[in-house]
Design a protein around this nucleic acid. Structure first.
Length: 594
RNA sequence: GUGCCCGUAGUUCAAUGGACAGAACACAUGGUUGCGGUCCAUGUGGUUGGAGGUUCGAUUCCUCUCGGGCACGCCA
């Protein structure tokens, strides 16, 4: 974990030598031939000078090295610092320094961002609708980012914004109120799953009617107003400021249904929330704050204020933002009926988020790419409303779509692949593959399979999920990492290892040193992954670490020879600890046996 | 029509303007009956969609172009 210190010394060196101050990039070396760390700083500095020939950057590199070597730190930690490749500076760490990393108390991540508070908003499923594999990826990413940020010291607030008003709900409620057999089944379903199943079928039936049946369509629109009225009543009962709008005046048909709709909305909304809660638990997630669209109806009032300030404008009876002069899209905040759109609700949400937990350094919204235009516009409007409060404080973290590789996209819900189905299916496949495995381990591996597949790629890239690849113990997969962990633990068990590392050893084998290098990099990998919101960096790192360990395992015997054995057990212990911590950062559990 | 994202080995994906573009899967050859079996090694495989430009240096930045996805005043 020398990176930070090397950077500090480089900074000081550059300053002492009178070079212009620049951002110093210290990279880990993929190839040990280029040392353990390297920097291109001399090339960068040469660029800033008049002369551009190669000789110059090598001269600068040598000058830097000479100065660097005068510091105690360099004397103590490196067996060599040398220039190569026309100006790169390569750092070779002393073996005994690397070995110190085996001490468990050295495998820690410095909380360099301590004191900062950040909100990560993720999951956001809509009630009355399916929880699909996209939500699963969203949660996998969100949960991992939360853990990464916590690891580097952030105080993280976990938030979830769930849609509990809108047309999709009106469609489901319509079917539950007016279509057989749904209306008869409402009082019969008691189990969470049966209830969610009924909601899914009701939503499908309601959507169909909305498309095909004109009178039904009108009725559904009325129910939508009643849902808004219900949400308003619900929040007022709990003392939350709602909008000043009287939704009842929009209802064209019978308004006496309002009590029915209110009760039904409240009841079925809770069904969804109970179901979601079970899934959150299954994938090891929880939230500090659940936000609901129903508590953001006052966004219409914020939007109206924005009209008075000249930020939004009225147009054809609606309230819109003309984005053209900012290079953005035009978007509707209040529709011509007077209902807030998603945009207006966001204007009510943001002030809540920024006021409830004290000073936030940022809010990260984990949301799909299709919302890109939406966020650009709402962020801009919020900045226009209060620049100091919102500038650079919000980030839309895009996550890509999930498809199935051998794509039967069908599931019980019809159009989408359910998240729970994917978890269950993964578990089934694992049990088929490992008949001896106990239930608890199978569940841990199944969640690991799904989560790893969701995290191993860049967050914004679309992924195609393949059971075959994901479940494989070979190569790039969750089980491969879990297996490596279990294997290391098995050896430690067998040796009754007492976790007291041996910190001296001469003549490291190549494979041993390679593992030590990997462990040396762990901390900076975590920092990099946290800053860039990139769990895939950790996934890739853990795979590399596992590969190094398995190679070593194959070539050398651990339980053999006094001194070697102690060292190799310490090495195995450190690998296991790093794997466990790394997998924790991905939101994946490790089985002690598998 | 406008804007955003993507295009890299047969396949799935990496690579903050840097060293020979890296892994995994698949394929070929070989090692290991062990501490844990589904482990390991080596090899084959690339005009980074195409054409220009900037740079000592471009997968990365700029322009054009082809192909795919998404969004763009009354959904969430």
């Amino acid at each position: 974990m020398l990176k930070q210190k090397i950077l500090e010394d480089l900074q000081k060196t550059v300053q002492d030598l009178g070079f212009p101050s620049i951002d110093i990039l210290l990279s880990i070396s993929k190839n040990p031939y280029f040392g353990d760390y390297n920097t291109n700083i001399a090339l960068q500095l040469a660029k800033l000078q008049v002369s551009k020939d190669k000789q110059k950057s090598e001269e600068i590199a040598n000058e830097i090295i000479r100065k660097l070597k005068s510091f105690d730190f360099a004397q103590d930690n490196f067996k060599e610092i040398k220039v190569a490749g026309g100006g790169f500076i390569n750092f070779f760490i002393k073996d005994e320094i690397l070995i110190e990393n085996l001490n468990p108390k050295n495998i820690v991540i410095k909380k360099i961002h301590a004191g900062k508070k950040i909100m990560v908003e993720f999951a956001h499923p809509n009630t009355h609708k399916a929880f699909h594999i996209g939500h699963l990826r969203n949660i996998s990413i969100g949960e991992s980012i939360v853990r990464l940020l916590e690891a580097v010291g952030y105080n993280v607030i976990r938030a979830n914004y769930e849609g509990d008003v809108g047309m999709h709900i009106a469609k489901a409620l319509y079917a539950l109120l007016h279509i057989s057999p749904f209306k008869e089944q409402i009082n019969k379903v008691k189990d969470v799953k049966d209830r969610i199943d009924l909601l899914g079928r009701a939503y499908a039936a309601g959507s169909k009617e909305f498309e095909e049946n004109e009178p039904a369509k009108q009725l559904i629109k009325d129910i939508n107003f009643l849902v808004y009225a219900s949400a308003q009543r619900f929040q007022q009962e709990r003392g939350i400021k709602s909008s000043s709008t009287d939704y009842m005046k929009f209802v064209t048909g019978r308004t006496e249904e309002v009590d029915n709709v209110f009760e039904l909305w409240k009841e079925t909304r809770q069904w969804s929330l109970d179901y979601f809660e079970a899934i959150y638990k299954r994938v090891y997630t929880h939230y500090d704050r659940y936000y609901f669209e129903s508590e953001c109806l006052a966004g219409v009032d914020v939007a109206r204020e924005a009209v008075e300030k000249g930020i939004l404008e009225e147009n054809d009876g609606a309230v819109i933002f003309k984005g053209e002069k900012y290079g953005l899209d035009t978007r509707v905040f209040i529709n011509s009926l007077g209902l807030p759109t998603y945009e207006a609700k966001e204007l009510a949400l943001a002030p809540k988020q920024f006021s409830e937990f004290g000073e936030l350094s940022k809010i990260v919204h984990v949301v799909g790419p299709e919302q890109s235009s939406f966020f650009k516009v709402t962020f801009k409007v919020e900045e226009l409303l209060d620049l100091k409060k919102y500038e650079d404080k919000q980030y839309h973290l895009i996550y890509g779509w999930v498809r199935l590789k051998h794509g039967k996209m069908s599931s019980r819900a019809g159009e989408v692949v359910l998240g729970e189905w994917l978890l269950d299916e993964a578990k089934k496949e694992i049990k088929k593959e490992f008949p001896e495995m106990d239930e608890e381990t199978a569940e841990i591996v199944a969640v690991g399979v799904v989560k790893y597949s969701m995290l191993a790629f860049g967050t914004s890239s679309e992924i195609s999920f393949s059971f075959e690849d994901s479940i494989s113990l070979e190569g790039d997969s969750g089980p491969y990492l879990q297996y490596t962990y279990a294997r290391a633990k098995s050896v430690l068990r067998m040796a009754n290892y007492n976790f007291e590392p041996v910190l001296s050893l001469k003549n490291l084998e190549k494979e041993e040193r390679e593992i030590l290098r990997m462990i040396e990099y762990f901390e900076s990998m975590v920092e990099e992954a946290a800053i860039n919101y990139a769990p895939n960096i950790i996934a890739q790192y853990l795979t590399d670490l596992s590969k190094s360990y398995n190679l070593f395992y194959q070539k050398h015997r651990i339980l053999e020879g006094e001194e070697k054995m102690e060292f190799r057990l310490a090495l195995s212990c450190a690998v296991a600890a790093t794997l466990k911590m790394g997998l924790y950062l991905l939101g994946i559990k490790v089985p002690e046996r598998m």
